[in-house]
């Protein structure tokens, strides 16, 4: 097992190395960059000072270097924790991302917990009460949940929240807490703003997961060992939760692998609609503005989360199902 993990870690490093090369190369293929926009701006202002400034900028960002040299400069920076500088924000990439990633992780974690806490029991109920009225109702809600696009649901909830609950909508804080230091009141304010994005982000995942849980459990309930458990005289609740559900969790665990990267990029549209200070919109704007270092750093962060997430999912799967043992 330890050998297996070590081997996987080694593969991960190799994978990430290739992703960084290919990603960096592709991002550099696009003509122009965010810097060009600034240079043009400076040119428009004219004058010798500006010309010198342009040259110094070019030198600083290595704009005239060939791609491999640029790549090498960037990688050697990364090793020391320097991810380069954002052209558009004129700030170090590291601090830009860090200031936002907390909210992203918080939001997405809540969404994930919400998804599982709702989807597993509802899916189990739906499977054990197949073809009854509650099952049909749940199924209907599931299809709505899957079919309604995120942004639409966000807008609807915004309207509902402002009309019926009279809460401030959009953003993660009310005005008076926006730049206030952390306090319990501020945490409370954050939570009161969070429910809308959490529900919107979690809605389709919850619907989908409920569906998967139902289908899987129905398969498992037909298995002989479920009958064996009943024949032993166990309570139905024990039969379902101990013997059946554990065997139906595999696909849910496998989705965890792709879930980690979506923690920081998944809520893009919702964040834009709800004006949330998370990383998703930043990533999109970095791609649109050709903000090279910001984009490649995001790309690498997502890749790392993807490979780590997959490793964690594989390990978790081995823990849930003893038949899966890695050599």
């Amino acid at each position: 097992m330890v050998n297996y993990v070590l081997r996987r870690l080694l593969y991960m490093v190799v994978t990430l190395f290739f992703i960084s090369i290919i990603g960096f190369f592709i991002i550099n293929l696009v003509p122009g960059s965010a810097l060009d926009a600034r240079i043009n701006q400076l040119r428009a202002q004219g004058g010798e000072v500006s010309y010198q400034e342009i040259e110094s900028l070019k030198a600083r960002y290595g704009l005239n270097d060939p791609i491999p040299v640029k790549y090498w400069k960037w990688v050697s920076g990364v090793v020391h924790g320097d991810f380069g500088e954002s052209f558009t924000y004129q700030e170090p990439v590291g601090s830009l991302i860090w200031s936002r990633i907390g909210f992203s992780v918080l939001l997405s974690s809540f969404a994930l917990i919400f998804t599982w806490v709702v989807a597993i029991p509802v899916g189990v109920y739906s499977a054990t009460h197949r073809y009854t009225v509650p099952d049909y109702v749940i199924t209907l809600i599931q299809f709505i949940g899957v079919a309604v696009p995120d942004f639409l649901m966000a807008l609807i909830l915004l309207v509902v929240a402002s009309k019926f609950f009279h809460t401030g909508v959009g953003g993660l804080f009310s005005q008076q807490y926006q730049n206030a230091p952390w306090s319990w009141a501020r945490v409370g304010n954050l939570l009161s703003h969070m429910w809308i994005p959490v529900i919107v982000i979690a809605a389709s995942a919850t619907a989908w997961t409920t569906r998967v849980m139902r289908a899987n459990l129905l398969d498992v309930l037909n298995q002989q060992y479920v009958q064996t458990a009943r024949a032993k005289g166990l309570r139905e609740a024990v039969v379902i939760w101990k013997h059946a559900v554990r065997n139906a969790l595999h696909p849910l665990i496998m989705t965890l692998g792709s879930l980690l990267p979506s923690l920081i990029s998944g809520e893009v549209i919702v964040s834009i609609v709800l004006n949330l200070p998370t990383t998703g919109p930043l990533y999109i704007s970095s791609l649109i503005n050709k903000d090279m270092y910001l984009a490649i750093t995001f790309l690498m962060a997502l890749s790392i989360l993807l490979v780590v997430g997959n490793l964690l999912a594989d390990l978790l799967l081995a823990w849930v199902d003893p038949r899966i043992r890695y050599e």
Partner: peptide, 9 residues
């Protein structure tokens, strides 16, 4: 083959 639960000893 299938009457014992694979997840438990």
């Amino acid at each position: 083959m299938t009457s014992l639960n694979p997840c438990y000893t």
